[in-house]
Design a protein around this nucleic acid. Structure first.
Lengths: 192, 192
DNA sequence: GTCTATATCTCGATAGAC
DNA sequence: GTCTATCGAGATATAGAC
């Protein structure tokens, strides 16, 4: 593997483990097993390295959201995506960035994060709209709102899990959301 | 105001604006308008100053949760607390800490954060249980799960708002949660 | 392309004058 | 109690040999 790939891979790992501000170029080079000269040959500095690493991470994460477009009814797909295993105590590799002061004030980095969320929210919105049209959820549900609610449950689940240092709160938050969706589904049936 | 109070106040502000790791003793002293000698006279260092500042912040936040115990039916109280104004783009002063690598590895700080969430989740759980008993929510709802779901919506709302740099996603996430609660409420009516 | 050596700054803390 | 001076370490980057 080339030094460049070693560096972006190490940066991606460290962004997840420690965030951007807390990761030094020295940390990245040590984990990549590469000298300082290599790093500054391939990248202008920490910022550029993070841009490339974060873009790769977000490519993976965006791929996972395609589970919202697979087989099954819209509501089944929503529940399936919510139920994906998520390592709560490690935090979300994307959402984590929004709490890093150096990321939020870095126009290029925060734009990458924002557009990743836009993509995800767009898929959520579409699937929820399909569920409403199919009569699986009440017409009172606004897809744009519920998309943000469900994305927030996942992001907030990471926060609660990290606060406790346990997986439990993440799983509980998801279960609660599934039970609300089931209840909402019952409500639409009752109207028919 | 005493130098000590200036220092804890300044630290509380900076913890919110920048987090713990990104706040240096120098920053705190500058904002407090106090010299280095004063700071190390009153506190052993950055850690102890943060413990005192964070404890004060959490005292305030915990007081706000008492809205879950005021007047009105359980479901009304839940919706009222969810609807409190929250400055999304600034982030949650408590939840923010969980993404800071220096906080998570500091046993005393993360314990303060964890116990704050425990207090809040306990009040949520009790109010939800009351709503189920009162027939405002279906019996299929597990209070411990839904408590974490609704806390996660708020925490996740902050994440989405910071990603976009806008208040909108926070408000949308709350609206979506309220609409799910309303739908769940309709479902229990239908069963009677 | 990759390395080591070095420069400059800031961090978090200590020393000691007043 | 409050100040300034200073320390040792690490962050981020540059210089220049190979």
């Amino acid at each position: 593997m080339s030094a460049r790939e070693q560096l972006t891979g190490a940066m991606a790992e460290l962004l997840w483990e420690r965030g951007y501000a807390a990761t030094s170029p020295r940390d990245v080079m040590a984990r990549a097993g590469v000298g300082q000269g290599s790093m500054y040959h391939h990248f202008s500095g920490k910022h550029e390295l993070a841009v490339e690493a974060l873009s790769a991470v977000i490519g993976d994460a965006t791929g996972e959201v395609s589970l919202l477009e697979g087989e099954g009814s819209p509501l089944e797909r929503m529940k399936r995506y919510l139920s994906l295993p998520r390592p709560g105590t490690q935090g979300c590799r994307v959402g984590r960035m929004t709490q890093d002061p150096q990321v939020v004030t870095d126009a290029e980095l925060i734009t990458i994060v924002a557009s990743a969320f836009d993509t995800m929210l767009g898929r959520w919105e579409q699937t929820i709209a399909e569920a409403v049209e199919a009569g699986e959820l009440p017409a009172s549900i606004r897809p744009a709102d519920l998309a943000r609610t469900l994305a927030a449950v996942i992001q907030g689940g990471y926060v609660l899990a990290r606060a406790k240092g346990e997986q439990g709160p993440m799983d509980a938050a998801i279960r609660g959301a599934l039970s609300l969706l089931d209840a909402a589904h019952s409500a639409v049936d009752a109207d028919h």
